[in-house]
């Protein structure tokens, strides 16, 4: 994020706290595309992503008075979007399809090149993951949450979080290799 954008977002904070519709709209226009990019990784399709976006922004405007300025305003909004995605996931699937750590098998270590893959291809691969795998992979690999944070957030054990992540990687690698076709080579080891 460049400095001018950060300043603009922070400038809108006070207007949003006062419930000014104009400030809310400007904040939305400034961040909606980026937040839809976040939501899309957690959703199974574009429609579900837009639902998450809508739920997230309504929460942002309702809870903006609670924002104490710890960290960036955009980072706070992003966490709210992620939480909205988790909420939608919980509604759709009451039970996480948790796989125990013992059931995770070692995937053969491979070396492959991902430069040839477009972002939209990678996004499709993520969206096609089982819901639990997708959630944990997004939270750990992209948002940067620790296993403990994920376990607390989802109400699962750290071991379950690790197993989900491991399975997610395995599935993604397998699909990437298929996409790359003959581009990948077996790694010795």
């Amino acid at each position: 994020m460049n400095i001018s954008r950060k300043l603009a977002v922070d400038d809108l904070l006070e207007g949003c706290r006062r419930g000014e519709r104009r400030a809310q709209e400007l904040l939305y226009k400034m961040l909606a595309s980026r937040m839809l990019g976040v939501c899309t990784r957690y959703a199974k399709d574009r429609y579900e992503a837009e639902d998450m976006l809508q739920i997230g922004f309504v929460k942002v405007f309702q809870k903006v008075k609670e924002f104490r300025g710890e960290g960036s305003f955009e980072g706070w909004i992003r966490r709210i979007m992620v939480n909205s995605a988790i909420e939608v996931y919980r509604k759709n699937q009451r039970m996480l399809d948790v796989v125990d750590i013992n059931e995770v098998y070692d995937v053969q270590q491979v070396t492959f090149d991902m430069n040839g893959l477009e972002t939209k291809d990678l996004l499709r691969l993520i969206q096609q993951l089982p819901a639990g795998y997708k959630l944990v992979f997004n939270l750990y690999a992209i948002e940067g949450y620790s296993h403990k944070e994920i376990a607390d957030q989802l109400g699962i054990t750290e071991g379950a979080s690790k197993s989900q992540l491991s399975r997610a990687r395995a599935v993604l690698k397998e699909k990437i290799m298929k996409l790359e076709g003959s581009k990948y080579v077996d790694h010795v080891g």
Binding site: L53, V58, F61, T119, I142
Partner: peptide, 27 residues
Amino acid sequence: FDKVFKDRFDSFELDPPPAAWTGIVQE
């Protein structure tokens, strides 16, 4: 492997439809 995804999606953006803001205002 994780870093590739993080770099790709950290600044990933998609334009929402105009109806999305209308829905937020109504809610």
